[in-house]
Design a protein around this nucleic acid. Sequence first.
DNA 1: CACATTTTTTGATCTGAATCAAACCGTCGC
DNA 2: GCGACGGTTTGATTCAGATCAAAAAATGTG
Lengths: 240, 240
Amino acid sequence: MGERLDIHNSETPVLCRSCEARHRGMCGALKPDELVEFARHTRKERHEHGDELIGDSTAIHSYANVMHGVVKLSKVLEDGRQQVVGLQFAPDFLGRLFGRESVLTAEAASTVDLCVIPRPALEQMINRTPALERRLMQQTLRELDEARDWMVTLGRKTAQEKVASFLYLIAMHADPAAEPVDGVSFELPLSRADIADFLGLTIETVSRQLTKLRQLGVVSISNNRTVEVPDLEVLQGLCG
Amino acid sequence: MGERLDIHNSETPVLCRSCEARHRGMCGALKPDELVEFARHTRKERHEHGDELIGDSTAIHSYANVMHGVVKLSKVLEDGRQQVVGLQFAPDFLGRLFGRESVLTAEAASTVDLCVIPRPALEQMINRTPALERRLMQQTLRELDEARDWMVTLGRKTAQEKVASFLYLIAMHADPAAEPVDGVSFELPLSRADIADFLGLTIETVSRQLTKLRQLGVVSISNNRTVEVPDLEVLQGLCG
DNA sequence: CACATTTTTTGATCTGAATCAAACCGTCGC
DNA sequence: GCGACGGTTTGATTCAGATCAAAAAATGTG
């Protein structure tokens, strides 16, 4: 667990020092010299809300770490029906390893800072650094767990439970340290339309359920975006 | 692609010679001597339809390859609502790598043959054999892709499309070589109740939609289990 | 084989969420 | 300040799929 010993090492690239990926993300697997090598290939990119980061069926030329913001992963049926299949927060890894082309669309749900690395550079690094591959494996397994949890929500929960589950998910990501006992406050990273696409509902139903949760005193919402949850345990109780 | 050159090598363990995992599964990553080493730790197990292979919230002591049959992965909410979150066919890998305890239930959906390996043995092998870890990574990524595809089905498709998608999924697994142009015939590995839990529907709705597909001439079903699809392309067209 | 049990199908009715429609509310530019 | 415009909320109605109920078919059993 001595991974942080080198934080004050002058060799650590400046940009990496405050990066979440360095601590909790994939770069935590890298030794100082490996990190320097890694940073030689990366570039920082800022994207605004709505920007498409990866297009469906486009060739995969690069990967990235989410440094800040929220990325929305989604799929669409030919007739336009859309389903959000994942949300990525800092310090998640972005991109489909070993894939020929992307099978989904990635879009900036908020202002997003990415640390982008070209595909060949990362793949060489993975081949040389087992610890890095292991980290990425663990993140992939976590994403699989999350996807399966969400399948339960999509397949078996009521609209009310879905909306509560969504708020709970965001609350936990906004403040991962929060105990369910505490109250928390956070900004919704998604519009009602995106929330609906995440939950397999319509905009109207999402709105109605939010209203209902407000009436129950489970949450209060200001400016359509700022959510306050006085008691996370109550919210959790409504998740089904 | 010379992986099969050693098939006639007398060193290849007898049980492995006809095993799908040896060819398309994780054991394809092993060199002959590694395979021998691997086989020293494994045991073959047969389970009957309905047997619980892994219990929710139980410690993970071993992993396995599915040699034959279908395994159903599912999750339940406290009040008993159930969602099937995955199906594993030969030669899929079974078990949550690096996890402390299982977050789901695995159950034999048919008679299932497993090649079981104790957790420490596999983990040591992974640490010594990068190619093995890579294979498992690829399988995990594939499972993640499948989970996300299924999220679209659960969140955005109609009952008819869900049932068609399920039949199409099974048809493709029953005969992976089949072109969508051909017709195929296969046995359903799941009961109506399991299908309903997979699709987020009720038994009655599944039954009604199957009847409707039969009336449309898209499938014909005998003995409740044997399905014939005269034209896979038509079925695919109904998947949404 | 007859009988009991489980699984599946079919039918009638109900309901939660979708759809259709309109009002409301920032906020942005002029 | 005003109107225009996207996003959100609220209301009325419809409908797909759930629920309740029972018949029919498959499966097991002495």
